[in-house]
Amino acid sequence: MEPITTTAMISAVVTYLAKKLKDNESVQDFFSDFTEATVNWIKPIFITEDKKPKEIIEDLKADPADELNTGAVENALAKALKRNPEAEADLKAMYDSLQAKASRGESIRIMHSKNVNTGNVNTGGGDFRQGDN
């Protein structure tokens, strides 16, 4: 199986954040689900210096289903990773944590990503093809 892409990891993290905000939880609640080391790089993207959510987080909280809002957060994370490529290890740790939650039965959905398989595929002896022709 091919490794998960950075885009898919970003999408999973943003989808989880949007779910938290939709459930009337705060961005701080989102941070508490991960280790401090893994979220230190992401905090300045989401939180102002006076510890208030930035506009992209307020917009996401106002309408977590809006693709413009989720896209803005995904774009902000992608830009942050471009500036600091070492943070991809932290993103991967966050993604792995979400996958562990999913394996315990908590639902995690990856949105806005093509050809992503996050689980096992049992073809019963048949062929399996994922992707575009």
Score class of each variant (00 low, 15 high):
Met1Asp: 05
Met1Thr: 10
Glu2Thr: 00
Glu2Ile: 02
Pro3Met: 07
Ile4Gln: 14
Thr6Tyr: 07
Thr6Leu: 12
Thr6Val: 15
Thr7His: 14
Thr7Glu: 15
Ala8His: 13
Met9Gln: 04
Ile10Glu: 12
Val13Ala: 13
Val13Glu: 13
Val13Ser: 11
Val14Phe: 10
Val14His: 09
Thr15Gln: 04
Thr15Arg: 06
Tyr16Glu: 00
Tyr16Lys: 07
Leu17Val: 02
Leu17Asn: 04
Ala18Arg: 01
Lys20Gly: 09
Lys20Glu: 05
Leu21His: 11
Leu21Ile: 12
Asp23Met: 08
Ser26Leu: 04
Ser26Ile: 06
Val27Ala: 13
Phe30Ala: 07
Phe30Asp: 11
Phe31Gly: 03
Phe31Cys: 03
Ser32Glu: 14
Phe34Asn: 08
Thr35Phe: 10
Glu36Val: 08
Glu36Asn: 08
Glu36Gly: 14
Thr38Arg: 07
Thr38Trp: 12
Thr38Ser: 15
Val39Trp: 03
Asn40Arg: 15
Asn40Ser: 09
Asn40Glu: 12
Ile42Tyr: 15
Ile42Trp: 14
Pro44His: 07
Phe46Gln: 09
Phe46Arg: 05
Thr48Glu: 12
Glu49His: 02
Lys52Asn: 09
Pro53Glu: 07
Lys54Ile: 07
Glu55His: 09
Ile56Glu: 07
Ile56Cys: 06
Ile56Gly: 05
Ile57Tyr: 03
Ile57His: 00
Glu58Thr: 13
Asp59Gly: 06
Asp59Lys: 15
Leu60Thr: 00
Leu60Asp: 00
Leu60Gly: 03
Lys61Glu: 14
Lys61Ile: 09
Ala62Lys: 13
Asp63Met: 09
Asp63Ser: 11
Pro64Lys: 01
Pro64Gln: 00
Pro64Cys: 08
Ala65Ile: 03
Glu67Cys: 04
Asn69Asp: 11
Asn69Ala: 11
Thr70Val: 13
Thr70Cys: 08
Thr70Ser: 14
Gly71Cys: 10
Gly71Asn: 06
Val73Trp: 09
Val73Gly: 08
Glu74Thr: 13
Asn75Ile: 06
Ala76Asn: 13
Leu77Val: 15
Ala78Trp: 05
Ala78Leu: 13
Ala80Leu: 10
Ala80Gly: 15
Leu81Thr: 10
Leu81Cys: 11
Lys82Pro: 02
Lys82Asn: 03
Arg83Ile: 00
Arg83Trp: 01
Pro85Gln: 10
Pro85Ile: 04
Ala89Tyr: 05
Ala89Gly: 05
Asp90Gln: 14
Asp90Thr: 01
Lys92Asp: 14
Lys92Pro: 06
Lys92Thr: 15
Met94Val: 08
Met94Thr: 01
Tyr95Ile: 03
Asp96Arg: 00
Asp96Phe: 02
Ser97Ile: 01
Ser97Gly: 02
Ser97Glu: 01
Ser97Asn: 02
Leu98Trp: 04
Gln99Asp: 07
Gln99Pro: 03
Lys101Thr: 04
Lys101Met: 13
Ser103Val: 02
Ser103Tyr: 03
Arg104Thr: 08
Gly105Trp: 00
Gly105Pro: 02
Glu106Val: 15
Ser107Lys: 03
Met111Gln: 12
Met111Asn: 12
His112Ser: 13
Lys114Trp: 02
Lys114Gly: 09
Lys114Ala: 14
Asn115Thr: 05
Asn115Ser: 00
Val116Phe: 15
Thr118Arg: 00
Asn120His: 03
Asn120Arg: 01
Val121Arg: 06
Asn122Leu: 13
Asn122Val: 14
Asn122Gln: 05
Thr123Cys: 05
Gly126Ser: 14
Phe128Asn: 13
Gln130Pro: 02
Gln130Phe: 08
Asp132Tyr: 10
Asn133Asp: 10
